[in-house]
Amino acid sequence: MTDRALVATFGFDERRVLPALRLLAYDELVLLAGRNSTRADGYARLKALEPSLRTVLVDPFDLGDCLDRTASTLRDLAHANRSVRLSVTGGTKILGAAALLAAFQEGVEAWFCDPEPVRLPVLRGVRIVESVSPAARDLADSLRGPMPADRLLSRASGHGLSAREARAALGQLVAHGLAEEALDRGTVIVRPTTVLEAFRPHLSRHAARKA
C-alpha cells in the first residue's frame, strides 16, 4: 500500500494544523514553515506530538521561495510514490497562496481545515504544465526575447518539428498568453510575455525531465 504523506503549512500556532492532522489520514507529516516558526512553542508541541515530522524551511514572506520549495517537496514525495495531500490552513497568507498554487501546478489535493474540511477541486495527478504540449514547451524555451516569427519557427524546425507543428505550438503559446505577436515594419515579431517569464522555470523543469 502506498504511504500517505500530509504536507501542511505552518506559522506559529499548532492549533491551525491540528484539525488537518485529525481529519486527513497520513503516514508521514511534512511541515512547510519559516525558520522563526521552528522556534515557536507551537512547533515544539507539534514535534512532541509527532516526533518524526519533517520540516521544509521556507521564507514565509517570499512567494517565489514558498512556491519553489512547496512544488519541489510535492514532486519529491510523488516520485517516492507517496499519496500526497496538502493542508494550506496554517502559516502566512503568502505561504498559503504559494502552496495552493504549487498544488494546482503539481496536481495535488489541497485542503482547508479551519476547522471544517474543505477540499479544493483539482484532478489528482493532472499538472498545469500538461496544458502546454511538449512542442510548445520547446518553442517557449527558444523564445528568450523579441524575435521574428520566421526565425523562431525555423529554430523549432531545427529541433525536429515540422513547420505545421511549429506553427501550432506558437498558436498554443499565444492562446495561453505566453507569447504575443505584433507586426513591425512588415515582419511578425514574437515576444515572450510576463506570464511566460513567471512560468518559465516550471516549463523548463518539465522539459528537462522529459529529456
Partner: peptide, 20 residues
C-alpha cells in the same frame, strides 16, 4: 505583497480539466 507592495505575477496557465 502586503509590505513591499510589489506586484508578483503568478505562474499559472489556463487548465481545461475536462480534457484530461
Amino acid at each position: 505583497h502586503d509590505e513591499t507592495h510589489k506586484e508578483i505575477p503568478l505562474p499559472l496557465l489556463r487548465m481545461t480539466y475536462g480534457d484530461h
